[in-house]
């Protein structure tokens, strides 16, 4: 299995709902707590597993504002794992999820250095590395109803811009959608082969204009012929 997320840059509205739901779920989950420094003061900052940035693509008037959510992409060639000296970081063989064992991490930051996607953040208070768990404690939880065995971010997204599934299965929803819409890799040149794919914004639909077959002047009361329409 190769579990991951398919993220739709066409429909994401940048609401930060996924980032907040992620923090909420995971701060009490396998990787929590996710600490915050200066929470009520100047320059508040904290550990998040998912962040949304916004870009402007192209110059006005041909410009598009694109919201860009990013969490761990659960790369095939996860150098963040290779470099980890303690073995705290690992990629699970069974499903490809990349995790950090909170009990073994020494907080050296090296894995964060090795991650091109900014998916790892050191928790200053806890002294250990935090990253997206793909909500491993939801997706396998038999106590949850089946439709809720999905990452918190996926469940919360109001525009369904995040899909979760197995990219190894060519018939999974994520594989099919990714094929259909040309799912893309971020920084492919680095060779990390991320599992998570990004769907590009769609071309604007071209709508035909109503073909006008007469130049009749609708404004003329005189030429108006009322149809027989029963109330």
């Amino acid at each position: 299995m190769k579990l991951g997320l398919l993220i739709d840059l066409d429909t994401c509205v940048g609401c930060h709902g996924c980032a907040t739901a992620c923090k909420q779920w995971n701060t009490s989950g396998t990787i929590g707590p996710l600490s915050d420094s200066n929470p009520y003061g100047k320059d508040p900052d904290g550990a998040w597993l998912n962040r949304i940035r916004t870009y402007e693509v192209g110059d006005a008037p041909d410009s598009k504002t694109v919201h860009f959510p990013m969490s761990c992409l659960h790369c095939e060639n996860a150098d963040c794992v290779t470099v980890c000296p303690t073995g705290a970081s690992y990629k699970r063989e069974e499903d490809g999820i990349v995790l950090v064992d909170q009990d073994k991490c020494m907080g050296c930051n090296l894995c964060a250095w090795a991650c091109p996607y900014g998916a790892r953040e050191l928790d200053h208070d806890q002294g250990v590395m935090k990253k997206c768990t793909l909500c491993v404690d939801r997706i396998y939880d038999q106590n949850l109803p089946e439709e809720e065995r999905q990452p918190a971010c996926v469940l919360t997204c109001p525009t369904s811009s995040r899909l979760f599934g197995d990219f190894d299965d060519p018939e999974s929803e994520v594989s099919i959608k990714s094929r259909q819409r040309g799912g893309r890799d971020l920084m492919p040149e680095l060779g990390y082969e991320p599992t998570n794919k990004y769907l590009p914004p769609r071309e604007k639909a071209t709508v035909e204009m109503f073909a006008l077959d007469s130049t009749e002047d609708g404004f003329s009361l005189k030429s108006w012929v009322n149809k027989m329409i029963a109330r």
């Binding site: 100047k42 900052d45 962040r51 940035r53 870009y55 693509v57 694109v66 964060a112 900014g118 893309r184």
Partner: peptide
């Protein structure tokens, strides 16, 4: 290449957080 938009200028509009973060 980071954002996949290789055919246009790309500008950062919003980092998604006000203060500097770990990254």
């Amino acid at each position: 290449t980071a954002t996949t938009f290789t055919e246009a200028t790309v500008r950062l509009f919003d980092t998604g957080h006000s203060a500097e973060n770990f990254l």
